[in-house]
C-alpha cells in the first residue's frame, strides 16, 4: 500500500531528489594497489621501487667513499711522488702535519654533514613517490 493512498489527500509537491557525486578527478589516479602494497607483496613494480631506493643510496655512499679514497689514498702517494711537498712549511709547521693533524678532521665532518643531508633527501623523495602513488 502506498503512502499516497494511505493519507488519502493529494500528495504535496516535493523537490526532486538529486544525487550528488564528487567530480571524479582524483579517482583515476588511484591504481588498484597502493605502492606500499606493491612493495609488501613483492610484485615486480614493488621490486622496481625498492631497487631504485637502494641504488640511489648506494650510489651516494659510493660517491662519498670514492672521494674519501682519493683524498686519503692519494695523500701518501702525493708525498711519495712529490717529496718537496713533505717539507713545505705552513706557519712553521710541515704541510703533512697541517693536513693530517688538523684540516682533515673538519673535512670529515663537512663531508658527513653533506652526506646526511643528501641521504635524508633521497629518503624523502622515496616516501613522496610511494605516497603519491597511493
Amino acid at each position: 500500500m502506498s503512502r499516497a493512498s494511505a493519507s488519502g489527500g493529494p500528495e504535496p509537491r516535493r523537490p526532486r531528489r538529486e544525487v550528488v557525486t564528487s567530480p571524479r578527478t582524483t579517482a583515476a589516479r588511484h591504481p588498484r594497489y597502493p605502492a606500499t602494497r606493491e612493495i609488501d607483496e613483492q610484485t615486480r613494480l614493488g621490486e622496481v621501487y625498492m631497487r631504485s631506493l637502494v641504488r640511489t643510496q648506494f650510489r651516494l655512499a659510493l660517491f662519498v667513499c670514492t672521494v674519501l679514497g682519493c683524498v686519503v689514498g692519494g695523500l701518501p702517494l702525493l708525498f711519495l711522488l712529490v717529496p718537496e711537498l713533505r717539507g713545505v712549511l705552513v706557519l712553521g709547521i710541515p704541510l703533512p702535519w697541517v693536513v693530517l693533524a688538523g684540516l682533515i678532521y673538519p673535512g670529515f665532518v663537512t663531508g658527513a654533514w653533506l652526506y646526511v643531508r643528501q641521504a635524508e633527501r633521497n629518503e624523502r623523495h622515496f616516501a613522496d613517490l610511494v605516497d603519491q602513488a597511493r
Binding site: V64, I104, F108
Partner: peptide, 10 residues
C-alpha cells in the same frame, strides 16, 4: 675518525 665516515655512509 674517518672510519666513522665510512660507517656512516655504508
Amino acid at each position: 675518525t674517518g672510519g666513522y665516515l665510512v660507517l656512516l655512509v655504508l
